[in-house]
Nucleic acid binder design. Structure first.
Lengths: 243, 243
DNA sequence: GTGAAAACGTGCAAGGGCTGTAAAAATCGC
DNA sequence: GCGATTTTTACAGCCCTTGCACGTTTTCAC
């Protein structure tokens, strides 16, 4: 699976590990494939947002994208996958976050710092400055996923993969597969998930993007402060406990 | 929707609220319906366990149960629902648990007491005394659900409904919809879920039922102890903090 | 009881998602 | 350029799910 050579190119910041190595399109062929894939996904998402998931057939997506139905399923495992194209990048953001913990600074403080300015894979640090149009688009997207049972279940499956990453990452500190690692990973994942859920819930209630992001930050900070209390003096903190 | 009269029958223990009111089959017709529904579900589950979910068609289930395909979908919303028939009872068990918190005893101590002897809806207090055959059946069931992507997603959806129940129940103490209630509900749900997941994971790894239950109890107790530390002196504890 | 009304079950048919197979076409390494 | 590999395509088919029309059963009012 590993490709030799072709290294040397610096991407991203200097202190961060390389992100999204999956998107490197080395050959001419692969570049085209990546473009086709992106185009199919974009067109499909647009159609779904416009008319609803069940109201659009895969045949329509294929026709709009100028390919055959079989080709669509060649790139995407299922109709739902057309919408959840960013999952690998999402998981990579979690991995990056978990890897960012250092001696003297546990995972909880890292997340506490992140909740105010960024937040992995959601980036609602910027949501205050979102245009109304962009906010409406995101609202529509989350509404689509939340309303549809199958899509909702798909999102939960993604969330569980995030949980496993947290548990695995913490296992490096507390012992792989130990009850301690499982519990800590589950609780931190719950804090992470509660934050994201709050963002989506408020957004779907019609709150402005900035307000929803603020609520999410409140929930995230509170959850992390609670865990900080429980894990004071452990490897998960190992740093200053904020007031 | 409410039916008048026909009350007066005492069911269950005296101090507990009435459980599973959904199963009352009052009329002749409803009694028959309940029987048919149960039979379809049982036969379907048997077939799925025997040959796998995707290898059994709904038409086969219908034929084996002696009804038409349309009737199957009349009782169950989807093929998956044939397996998740016990969801209402599961949720009722959570409701009962949440309702069991009293002044002077918060939700966390209630769960801490329960993790040793019972555990809502899983009842692994008895799993030590499970026959090998019964253990094999449960292992097979969880294996079926875990292996199949759609079924797995369905289980996660159920878990999220449990989460909402916890949040709603805690909202009565900490304020409905407040960040405090959301965070506490999410964390307690994570503890609950981690416990159940541990039971299933160990079972699927081939551990004996008693051993898997013991591991699950360890995880549950640890998670609850962690939360007890974080919530000492709050309405979620409001009682003695066990060592 | 008895009749009408509502609910329920059935068979038929059809739409849409998804998966194979085999042939045609495009692409890359050399 | 050229051959080997991969991709794309068309076609056929299975299965889940639903709508429709009609016969059957249960319930309720009298």
């Amino acid at each position: 699976m590993h490709r030799k050579g072709q290294d040397g190119k610096r991407v991203g910041g200097p202190s961060l590990p390389a992100v999204t190595p999956l998107l490197q399109a080395v050959g001419l062929r692969e570049r085209k494939k990546a473009r086709t894939r992106q185009q199919i996904s974009d067109i499909a998402t647009g159609l779904f947002l416009e008319r609803g998931f069940d109201e659009v057939t895969v045949a329509e997506v294929a026709k709009a994208a100028g390919v055959s139905v079989k080709t669509v399923f060649n790139y995407f495992g299922s109709k739902e996958d057309l919408l959840f194209d960013r999952e690998p990048q999402w998981l990579a953001a979690i991995d990056e976050l978990v890897a960012a913990r250092e001696p003297g600074r546990g995972l909880i403080p890292v997340l506490q710092a992140d909740v105010e300015v960024r937040w992995p894979a959601l980036d609602f640090g910027r949501w205050d400055r979102l245009t109304d149009e962009a906010a409406a688009g995101r609202r529509q997207f989350y509404g689509l996923v939340t309303a549809h049972s199958g899509l909702h279940a798909r999102r939960l499956q993604m969330s569980e993969r995030v949980r496993e990453r947290f548990i695995a990452g913490i296992g490096e500190d507390l012992g792989d597969g130990t009850p301690e690692a499982i519990v800590a990973g589950s609780l931190i994942h719950a804090a992470y998930e509660a934050t994201g859920n709050e963002l989506i819930s408020r957004l779907l209630e019609g709150a402005p993007a900035g307000e929803a992001a603020a609520r999410a930050r409140t929930v995230g900070a509170l959850a992390l402060a609670t865990l900080a209390r429980a894990y004071a003096g452990t490897p998960l903190m190992d740093g200053p406990t904020p007031a």
